[in-house]
Structure formats: structure tokens, C-alpha cells
């Protein structure tokens, strides 16, 4: 199938470009790439739900945090080694997604957004409430032993990049296949016209629950990876801005495209990075971007490209 080949080729090209950037850019920027890739995994997870299924969640930080704390707390308090703790982080994200999804999917539209926002707020407050273990806003540093995988210490710059690249590549390639699969196409159908999809014999509620669970699992993976690679766990990752960021990244990069999330994270990362060098009020950039994007470019960067290149996945 040429379409699938083209998709895979595009994604492999993106991955190759990341490697070239890492090798050629100065250390500071190359170091940022690891962070961008991990956040892009989070954005890909969000995009699966928002961009492909058409469900706008305002509470994804709870899934990111579930992964982060699922990994971090078992490493910190129970002394688990990296891999089982990491797996538990992904599982925690998926499980929370399943539960929240089962409840929130009873609502739709605006109510769905508010319900997800409120669940995320409860999750954030819960982390603060159990401050004895989570250390609240201050957070904690992940013990060094829990950051060693197969004898490799992932706190080194190159090791960290390679680990982030492997995870990101896997997620990008799998998501590329997923959105072209029967499941992925049905999710798009739900986004386009849920009632019609239902009346074609698809169990839309079950499919949306699957979408939330997979999306939450990917977000949890990103959260666990963030803690694993950067060694820090804190409640700010569960707060409202971390629910807004993925929405912003996906809108900027292009909702419903596989490469949009990475593009969005990349641009927003450097925009905010630059702005925070100038002013304390760097989130002003995020606010302006949200308003301008919804007004003038709701399709995002990759969405604009897709007008020319229609096969863009």
C-alpha cells in the first residue's frame, strides 16, 4: 500500500531529521530536543483524542501526572527499579483514563470539557493533599538507581536523547499506523459525525472509551518518561497549564495530523523559551497563540500543509 509506505517514510524522515539536529546543534539546543520529544509524545496522545476523535479534554494533565507519579512514587517510596516502575506509570495513566472516560463519556461537548477539567483539578489537589509522600508543589528528585535501564544511566545527555528518540519514534510510527487502521478511521468518523457512525453499526461509546484509554496511556508514558529522563517529579505537572499545553501544541501544529504534535511542541517550546528570557509573563505568548490560532488558523501548521498535500497522515 503506497499510502502506508508514504506515511512510514515521512515519519522515518522526521526521526532522521531529529538525529541530524542533535548531532549538529549546540549542546543547549540539542539538550532541549529530548524534552521536546517527550512532550511531543504527550501531544500525540492528546491529539489522538482531540484531533482524531474530536473530544476536547481540559484535564489531560491528570494522565501525564498519573504516569509521572506512578513511576516516580514506586521508585521513590518502594524502591522499584526503572523498568517495572515505568511500566506501572503507563498502566496508571491507562487505568485513570479508563475510569475517567467511563464517567466523562456520559456527557458531551461543553460538559465533557468541564468534567475533565474538574477531575484533573481533583487529581492535582489530591497530590497536594498527600504532600507527605508527594512533597506537593516542591516535588522530589527521582533516586539515581531508578534512572538506570539495562545498565545504562539515562541522566547523561546522549543517553537521554537516545532513550527519548527511541520512545518518540515508537510512538510516532505506531500512531501513524493506528490512525490509518480500521480503529483510527472509525475514530475520525466519530469526530465527523457521531450519530451517522453509530447508525453504521459502530459502538461509538466503546470506541471513544478506547480512544481515551489509549490517549491517557500515551500521556502517562510521556509523564513517566519525563520523570525518568529528567529526574524530577512535581505537582506543577498536574496543574491546569499542563492540561492546556497539549491543546495549544496540537492546535498550533495541526489537529488530526501525525506530525502536527511535534511541530506544535517544537514551536511553542522555543516561543516560550525565548519569551521567558525576556519577561516573567511568558504565558502571555500561550494566551495570544490560543486566541490567534482559533481566530485565524484553526487547522494549525500541518493542517495548512495538508491543503496542498492531501495524503498527509
Amino acid at each position: 500500500m503506497s499510502e502506508r509506505l508514504r506515511t512510514d517514510a515521512l515519519h522515518l524522515g522526521v526521526i532522521a531529521l531529529l538525529v541530524v539536529l542533535f548531532l549538529t546543534l549546540p549542546t543547549y539546543y540539542a539538550g532541549n530536543l529530548s524534552r521536546i520529544m517527550v512532550l511531543a509524545i504527550y501531544a500525540i496522545g492528546y491529539n489522538l483524542l482531540f484531533g482524531y476523535t474530536g473530544l476536547l479534554s481540559l484535564g489531560h494533565a491528570m494522565f501525564f501526572a498519573a504516569g509521572m507519579y506512578g513511576y516516580g512514587l514506586t521508585a521513590q517510596l518502594a524502591g522499584w527499579p526503572a523498568l517495572p516502575a515505568f511500566a506501572l506509570g503507563i498502566l496508571a495513566g491507562a487505568a485513570l483514563g479508563l475510569v475517567v472516560g467511563a464517567l466523562a463519556l456520559r456527557t458531551a461537548g461543553v460538559a465533557f470539557m468541564i468534567v475533565t477539567l474538574m477531575f484533573a483539578q481533583s487529581a492535582y489537589l489530591t497530590i497536594l493533599y498527600f504532600g507527605t509522600w508527594t512533597r506537593g508543589d516542591e516535588g522530589f528528585v527521582v533516586p539515581g538507581v531508578a534512572r538506570v535501564v539495562l545498565g545504562i544511566d539515562l541522566s547523561g545527555e546522549t543517553e537521554r536523547f537516545v532513550a527519548a528518540l527511541i520512545l518518540f519514534s515508537l510512538v510516532l510510527l505506531v500512531s501513524g499506523r493506528l490512525v490509518r487502521s480500521r480503529l483510527g478511521r472509525t475514530l475520525v468518523a466519530i469526530r465527523e459525525n457521531e450519530e451517522r457512525t453509530r447508525m453504521l453499526g459502530y459502538d461509538a461509546t466503546r470506541l471513544k472509551l478506547i480512544a481515551i484509554t489509549v490517549s491517557a496511556a500515551l500521556s502517562g508514558l510521556a509523564g513517566a518518561a519525563y520523570a525518568l529522563l529528567f529526574g524530577y517529579v512535581g505537582a506543577s505537572f498536574a496543574a491546569v497549564p499542563y492540561s492546556i499545553f497539549p491543546l495549544l501544541w496540537v492546535l498550533l501544529g495541526g489537529a488530526g495530523t501525525t506530525v502536527g504534535p511535534l511541530i506544535g511542541v517544537f514551536f511553542m517550546f522555543y516561543l516560550i523559551d525565548t519569551a521567558s528570557g525576556i519577561t516573567l509573563a511568558y504565558m502571555l505568548i500561550a494566551g495570544l497563540a490560543l486566541v490567534l490560532l482559533t481566530l485565524f488558523a484553526p487547522q494549525g501548521i500541518a493542517g495548512l500543509v495538508r491543503r496542498r498535500v492531501r495524503w498527509l497522515p
Binding site: E192, N193, R196, M199, D203
Partner: peptide, 28 residues
């Protein structure tokens, strides 16, 4: 049975008010 399960048994239904996937191509 819920609607989708009835469709799954072999009913097909076209809506009174046109209901298609307007953003997707005809083939899809």
C-alpha cells in the same frame, strides 16, 4: 438492543436529514 447493535444485525438506515461525513472523501 442499542441502535448500533441492531444495525450490526443487518439493518441499514438513511436519515431523513442528510447525514454523511462531509469532511471525508466519498470513497471513505
Amino acid at each position: 438492543l442499542p441502535a448500533h447493535a441492531r444495525i450490526g444485525l443487518g439493518m441499514a438506515y438513511t436519515f431523513q436529514i442528510t447525514s454523511i461525513f462531509p469532511g471525508l472523501d466519498v470513497r471513505e
